[in-house]
Amino acid sequence: MEELMKTLKQQIVEQLNLQHIKPEDIGDDQPLFVEGLGLDSIDALELIVLLQQKYGVKLANPADGPKIFHSVRTFAEYISQHRTK
């Protein structure tokens, strides 16, 4: 899980082009959206693409996004349960 979270932080920074943030600065439990990292609805769509490209998980309903993408930890937990690659 620790390893997956570390990789995920790098992938998030890359996918969202977060030039001003270093992967290691993102806390495992820090909220990614609004008051946390400040991501928005477009970023949520980008994370859906990331999920599909890197882990082979297709998220059909964007409404599921907020729960899954709440933090790096919740994101990693979801991936480890559903990944196909």
Partner: peptide, 9 residues
Amino acid sequence: TSVSPTSFI
């Protein structure tokens, strides 16, 4: 199959 929305917007 795997299209990122940012450029489209």
